[in-house]
Amino acid sequence: MTSQESTKIFIKDPNKTYGLMELVDGTSPLVEKVPEDTVETFPHYFLLMIICTLSVILALFLLSLFFDAPLEDIANPLVTPNPGKAPWYFTGIQELIHYTDKPVIPGIIIPLLLILWLVSIPYIDRKPKTRLGTLFNRILVGGERRKVLILLFTSFIVGALIFTLIGSLFRGANWDFVLPWR
């Protein structure tokens, strides 16, 4: 519960010489605070954490039992594989580079701008105080429901997903389009 909410519930009236007391059923003393909706970390959270930890470890062991990490031939600078691919989290960028003859744009400028934009999201999406701020907020965030920001972020996620998928799975020799199941 935020402090704003608790001041709303406990209105302080300077003209009153009495205060509001209440008996609340609970196991800990709460003074000048509204009843909170909390639970003990032990055992509630630890149970969740232990179950989650064990499930992840089990899943990883099963994965590692059935799928081996790849190990190709020893590195050889004289034999260039076709296609040569970056790790999967960078194949989206590789895919974008394929569309242009100015690789600096998708390779350097777009990633840098994306990082800058991501970092600045909390500083863009705040309660505007001035009229200019309200205008900027409208354009960059889209008001209290942040329609613009959600649209931009969702496009970023979907775009990254699509280009990464195409780059990793649907590109073969000479970066030609291939179907992975063929």
Partner: peptide, 29 residues
Amino acid sequence: LSYTGYLLPWDQLAYWGITVGTTIMSYTP
């Protein structure tokens, strides 16, 4: 972390993955 680990097995995948990635870096003006 993931990217630097990718080179360590020193196989073709590692070698060319890092070659491709660092080539992209060299596009910086």
